[in-house]
Design a protein around this nucleic acid. Sequence first.
RNA 1: CGGGGUGUAGCGUAGUCCGGUUAUCGCGCCAGUUUUGGGAACUGGAGGUCGCAGGUUCGAAUCCUGCCACCCCGACCA
Length: 525
Amino acid sequence: MNNKFTYQLIKHLADYFYLYLCKTKKKTNTNKKIMAKDFITRAENYSEWYNELVVRADLAENSAVRGCMVIKPYGYAIWEKIQRALDDMFKETGHQNAYFPLFIPKSYFEREAEHVEGFAKECAVVTHYRLKPKRDGTPGLEPDPDAKLEEELIVRPTSETIIWDTYRGWIKSYRDLPILCNQWANVVRWEMRTRMFLRTAEFLWQEGHTAHATSEEAIEETKKMLEVYAYFAENFMAMPVLKGIKSPNERFGGALDTYCIEAMMQDGKALQAGTSHFLGQNFAKAFDVKFLSKENKLEYVWATSWGVSTRLIGGLIMCHSDDNGLVLPPKLAPIQVVIIPIAKTEEQQAAVNTEAEKIMAELKVMGISVKYDNREEYKPGWKFNEYEFKGVPVRITIGARDLEQGIIELARRDNLTKETIPIEGASQKVAKLLEDIQENLFNKALSFRENNTRKVDTWEEFLVEIEKGGFLSCHWDGTVETEKKIKELTKATIRCIPLDAIEEEGKCIFSGKPSHKRVIFARAY
RNA sequence: CGGGGUGUAGCGUAGUCCGGUUAUCGCGCCAGUUUUGGGAACUGGAGGUCGCAGGUUCGAAUCCUGCCACCCCGACCA
């Protein structure tokens, strides 16, 4: 059963998930392979597959938790790794963590016109603060009509409004600036269609909100945080990203410019992995946040906001995983090395244990997280498979038979190769191997992206190429109408206008009007 | 909200068209014995409101009606 690992992987990452194999009338080919990269994505071309793999959160009898997920310990450990790495980088760039309320008065949203338009359709609204038994005597509870809130509260879909309402009280003079705050929190967006890890109704994220005295400084901050995200994606997640600016149509509600990093998944679709917004003075004006400048003039504050979410876990899975399960880059793997003993007699077990303890101690000194799995209820073959679908980068097998010759077996997850090495110096070898794997994963993903990025110059060609997936580098006339039309016809959107785009004269792929830069089109999650 | 589909044990399923003994099989779970270098074998065992409610019938997982839930496509989505 090829879907077995996927099922177990999901069980490990998210609790209370059901695996639902969509049944069709065709009963042949039920054992068709279900690829790792599709475990979140659904098979794009599922007509080939008579079983389709999807997951959903356990609803019990409560439709209100539609599209939410419980993240199991192993999945959460990955999130913690992501958090820690990012948080360190935020601190290095001078940011501090803070926390703002989950509930935002409805009226706050109404103050910034574009912002409210962007989020109004997906807000969870709190209207009452108390329940009471049903009035008609039937069992159950209902909101107490006497406990209706004067003003409805919105469960935050993002915190710009409440944070800028708070910043008003913090900012009086240029000496109070800049304010560089970050918040680790959950947010709720009532999406009509949810997809595990990529678009859940509730998700965990980090949102930075900064306030600056000048436009230049705010723009610099916006770009700096984009660089932080790009660095993190490439060096920790081993996921190459394109840095760019969003077209007006894809821009964040209330922003003047939205910068983003875009990654390519194994099926050629784009995933927006992080965004950094230059908000101009929009929120300062909406929430009346002014400061006295050095020149003794009253001015509105300049703002940025930036965020990444648990969607990164989805990106991580879809970027690297293979048919054997998850593949984690060593820098984000909760377990970097697993040691599996093979021994029959008690004597052999003792010998293997001693050797394992020694290697573990050496690895721990080097800051490598290592797990020794000496559970007796599972056989080695079982464990091999288990750690493969959990994506542990390096596996060491210590067998009594090999121990006599002073060797152990080293297996790497990224290319599934194995080698036997002397015990002497094994830990150094492992450390080196972890670095190799990190690098290899990045290079593999990078060459995949390069092989699937094409220049396209005619509309006919575009229509053919977009079906093949990947990024299409094309000229665009810069108008929203053209972009919308292309989206309507092909489902492809402008992922970004790359920051490193070269000046080049050309004609818009669709309208034929002049253009001087190529932009990236793709289908996206 | 529109179109299409599905509900049988913890999970995956057979049986439904064409009603008929005690609802099938696999995984997992429990007990015991033998096992351990790529998901062990055998024996025994536990586990079910057949989504819910009505109806037809001597008899309903199966037929009819209504409802509920979920999935897929669409609308929606930085």
